[in-house]
């Protein structure tokens, strides 16, 4: 069965129509915004904002696919940070471990920060074609072969996932049981899966390279782009608004708001 594992969604929303360069820049600003505060209330507000953008751009379904990962990240972050940092208000102490209120709050904020990063990334991939991404990297003066390598990595993934699922079926039909055994035993069981996948990957990469060469890839002369990249007023508006918000947030943090602990 053919299932697209690209994240790009349809129908197109106003976010899809933004210039990909605007989206790269906006994503970076959202990252910056996430880094500004370390108080869970503030980070929570940003998280809600990012989720609203996800909803508006039709990428919520893709975020939903990663719900368990996001949840686990947030839980682990809250549970683990207290082991590494301490604050003034002690909640309890056990042997040499002190757990403080601030560190719990900080951990929760860090979990949300990671979630913000991930969701912003998902929104970007859900609303931007790989070709648009490549094209904008080039407009931003990244050398073409490098930009193409980045986008090829994205494209190889579906092929490998497809081959991978066939390989898993073929080996389970021969009695490979991935569920049981010790940790080391289980690791060894991945060999029958990894070897065919690797060989498949090497073969298809070699073929791809030949097909690329045959399509004048890497030839001399200026490359053109079928997709048009033209910033529109909306792009400038989005950038302007985000810079404004980011600036205000920075000012706020520097004047002592939105932090449970005096660190990043």
């Amino acid at each position: 069965m053919v299932v697209s594992i690209f994240l790009y969604t349809k129908p197109l929303t106003p976010v899809h129509r933004l210039d990909p360069r605007t989206k790269i820049f906006a994503m970076l600003l959202l990252f910056g915004l996430g880094l500004t505060f370390n108080h869970p209330l503030y980070e929570g507000a940003i998280l809600i904002g990012v989720l609203a953008i996800a909803l508006w751009s039709g990428s919520l379904a893709n975020v939903w696919r990663l719900r368990y990962i996001l949840l686990i990240l947030m839980l682990f972050s809250t549970a683990l940070w207290p082991f590494f940092i301490t604050g003034p208000t002690e909640v309890f102490r056990w042997w040499r471990i002190r757990v403080c209120l601030e560190s719990l709050l900080y951990g929760a904020a860090m979990g949300m920060r990671t979630a913000i990063f991930l969701i912003a990334g998902i929104i970007f991939l859900s609303t931007t074609r790989i070709e648009e991404f490549t094209a904008s990297l080039i407009k931003l003066r990244v050398p073409y072969p490098m930009a193409f390598a980045i986008s090829t990595a994205f494209r190889l993934l579906p092929t490998l996932v497809g081959a991978g699922s066939v390989i898993i079926q073929a080996q389970t039909a021969r009695g490979l049981d991935l569920q049981s055994g010790s940790v080391v035993g289980r690791m060894r069981k991945f060999i029958p899966l990894l070897v065919p996948i690797l060989i498949y990957a090497v073969r298809s990469v070699n073929l791809q390279a030949m097909a690329l060469e045959s399509k004048h890839f890497g030839g001399k002369g200026e490359r053109t782009f079928y997709l048009e990249l033209k910033p529109r007023p909306a792009d400038y508006l989005v950038i302007f608004l985000l810079i404004l918000i980011f600036g205000a947030a920075l000012y706020w943090r520097l004047t002592g708001h939105g932090a449970v602990l005096p660190r990043l």
């Binding site: 790009y8 494209r155 097909a211 399509k215 030839g219 490359r223 053109t224 079928y226």
Partner: peptide, 27 residues
């Protein structure tokens, strides 16, 4: 022979355009 290996793009139009882009053909 392997048609999977020679498709690089995310839609049909862009796939046909790929070689032309490399050759620098105007839009």
């Amino acid at each position: 022979q392997d048609f999977e290996a020679q498709l690089f793009s995310t839609n049909v139009e862009l796939e046909i355009a790929f070689g032309l882009e490399n050759m620098g053909v105007p839009r």
